[in-house]
């Protein structure tokens, strides 16, 4: 069984960041999932000691800087989402894939709603229902990743 070290977490976060800042255009902008958040949630469920609310908050700050949005906006949303993930982490790792997927979907929606509230406070406009498309694409991606990781998890248990 391989141990998770912090470097691996940071490396995957950086890769997720590169995915996040890919030059999306057109409809891709509406559907592209929040890669960094997905990677964060993955590590929060797998290694809550190494990756927790603080890591989420810092990654949120990096996203704020990279995307040019209001400083601290994504940081707050990520911290809140990470909090909900950490609180139920012990139960979550015992869930089946479907239950886990449903819970992660809820977390993605929480993140999106938190961002929406902050943007509306900052004087943004109501974006409409398309705003929640990243949750759906995100959960599809999560499902693929969770499937593969649960598979390896089962194997390691057998070992």
């Amino acid at each position: 069984m391989q141990r998770i070290n912090a470097n691996r977490i940071y490396l995957t976060l950086i890769i997720a960041l590169v995915f996040q800042i890919l030059p999306w255009s057109g409809f891709g902008l509406y559907i592209h999932p929040d890669f960094v958040l997905l990677v964060l949630l993955y590590w929060i469920l797998r290694a809550p000691k190494l990756c927790s609310i603080g890591t989420a908050w810092l990654s949120g700050l990096v996203i704020d800087l990279a995307t040019g949005s209001l400083f601290g906006q994504n940081a707050l949303a990520y911290a809140l989402t990470a909090f909900f993930a950490v609180t139920y982490q012990r139960r979550l790792i015992l869930f089946t894939v479907w239950q886990q997927t449903a819970y992660v979907f809820l977390l993605l929606i929480v993140n999106q709603i938190c961002l929406l509230v902050l943007k509306l406070f900052a004087g943004g406009e109501n974006p409409g229902w398309l705003y929640f498309l990243p949750c759906i694409s995100g959960i599809l991606l999560w499902y693929v990743v969770a499937f593969s990781s649960v598979g390896s998890h089962g194997k390691s248990k057998n070992n």
Binding site: I53, G54, W57, L61, F71, G72, A75, L80
Partner: peptide, 21 residues
Amino acid sequence: SPFSRLVLFAALSISLMATDS
């Protein structure tokens, strides 16, 4: 505890948002 961490980071980000805007 996670909750106190959340409160800390939320306060930090809100003050950052205020400073930035």
